[in-house]
């Protein structure tokens, strides 16, 4: 019983970090209708900024995290301006942006390989990882609880932003029809920048937690494949879908690791993806295609 509760908490914790990444993916997808494969790069950028502000500048974790989130957000905006804006202004075919995003993910990865090297780096022990007793029910790590709580705070913040603010409303409108949102007087380029900033910032949060969990290296961004799978399971473009898909994935991974074998984790993940695509190709919360005229 202890084991189940412990693995469930671990699974939710991992899933919530996936959710931070998957939500960003989905947000971008819902506006521009392409999968931004450079998304993992924002996570890596966040991780390295955090690392170097902690290590190099000797600042505390709050300053480092703040710098990491803002840095990841700004780099997402820059990537959009450099790589996607020129394309979307010329053609409505989103496939080209997808190809550009594959290119950008390689560029970002290799910028780090060239400048700081490909070795694995551990973040200084600034985030508590000691075991804690969870209400006498199970033993889990402080890190898992912290990442779970942080993810919930950021996802709730995103939800508030989308539901309560003017730009949040505009983003929801644009995710239904970007062009019509433009006709309402919304500066579409600014809206897209805001979306990328938010997506990058959330990836930055994920990046910090993932670099504590798995150490930091230029290819850490590959982990977003999991978040991508989660977003597809939940239904690409749907934010609740991305969160639910991520939690399912995190739980599936941790329960597999706990009760079957760690070796089977990825097998289960991609098995879930295939089953979803066969049973419900649009994902759990996916929008049906086509609109009422």
């Amino acid at each position: 019983m202890d084991m189940i509760i412990q693995q469930v908490i671990n699974g939710l914790s991992l899933g919530s970090v996936y959710a931070l990444i998957a939500v960003g993916y989905s947000l971008v997808y819902s506006i521009l209708l392409f999968s931004n494969f450079a998304h993992g790069g924002f996570l890596v950028i966040g991780g390295y900024i955090c690392y170097f502000v902690l290590k190099g500048a000797g600042m505390n974790i709050w300053t480092a995290s703040f710098a990491a989130l803002i840095g990841a957000g700004i780099s997402a905006v820059i990537v959009e301006r450099l790589a996607y804006k020129p394309i979307r202004e010329r053609t409505p075919v989103t496939l080209y942006m997808l190809i550009a995003s594959l290119g950008m993910s390689i560029v970002i990865e290799n910028i780090f390989v060239v400048t700081v090297g490909g070795r694995f780096r551990a973040l200084p022990p600034v985030i508590p990882t000691q075991p804690v007793n969870f209400f006498g029910l199970a033993t889990t790590s402080a890190f898992d609880l912290l990442s779970l709580v942080t993810a919930i705070v950021f996802l709730a913040g995103l939800q508030l932003f989308l539901s309560k603010t003017k730009w949040g409303l505009a983003i929801r409108a644009a995710s239904y029809n970007l062009r019509t949102a433009g006709l309402m007087g919304v500066n579409v380029n600014r809206l897209i920048s805001i979306v990328f900033f938010v997506a990058g910032l959330l990836a930055g949060v994920g990046g910090i937690f993932l670099s504590v969990r798995y150490t930091l290296y230029p290819q850490l961004g590959m982990i977003t494949t999991k978040a991508f799978v989660a977003a597809v399971i939940g239904g690409l473009g749907s934010l609740p879908g991305a969160v639910v898909g991520s939690l399912i994935l995190g739980l599936a991974e941790m329960l597999t690791a706990g009760f079957i074998s760690s070796q089977f984790r990825d097998l289960v993940v991609f098995g879930l993806l295939i089953v979803t695509l066969i049973v419900r190709p649009t994902g759990l919360f996916g929008k049906s295609v086509g609109e009422k005229v």
Binding site: R172, N177, T180
Partner: peptide, 11 residues
């Protein structure tokens, strides 16, 4: 071209 997933008020 109304925003179908938004409420009338939000539109």
């Amino acid at each position: 071209k109304v925003f179908a997933p938004l409420t009338v008020y939000e539109n």
